[in-house]
Amino acid sequence: MSAFPAADRLVAGIFLLFVATTVAGSVLAVFTTRIIRSVCGLALASIGLAGLYYFLHSPFLALMEILIYIGAVCVTIIFAVMLAEPDEPRPDKPTGRSILWWLGAIVVSGAIFWSVARLGLMGNWPTPAIDRKDGSVHDIGVALLTTYSLAFEVISLVLMVAILGAVAIARSGRHHE
């Protein structure tokens, strides 16, 4: 890149924009009361994440994030939402029991956040020895079928378990009628 005034700050600004998008999307997904807006928050967070992947020199992963998480996952969720009741009932008044659940959820998510943040900041992460030539079809194919083939297969196993779980839940729902 040739000399351009304040190029560093421009790049830092774009990076912060993606971070802000991710955080804002996640907050929206959790705190809004309308389920359709939660899905939009999820989509927004995925866009922010895609931007962060781009900053990690992985345009392929960034575009896959958009194609799969927004183009497939969010679309599926919205489709499921559309089949439900359009007007969500007002949230119930908080009772003692629900406040207890709230506290439990806050403690658990706080613990997860703390440990992930600690791991990210303090962990002894190995720096990649070579610059991975991410992007060309050949490199991706080689990586998926040799170096990361175990991870690839394990992920497909997880997906199969998820599908079986969905089938099981759907079947049991049918028996109750």
Binding site: C40, A43, I66, L67, I70, G71, V75, I78
Partner: peptide, 13 residues
């Protein structure tokens, strides 16, 4: 194709 897949979500919204 990644950005092409987004237009469904907009129509749906």
């Amino acid at each position: 194709f990644a950005f092409g897949s987004l237009n469904v979500i907009a129509v749906m919204l």
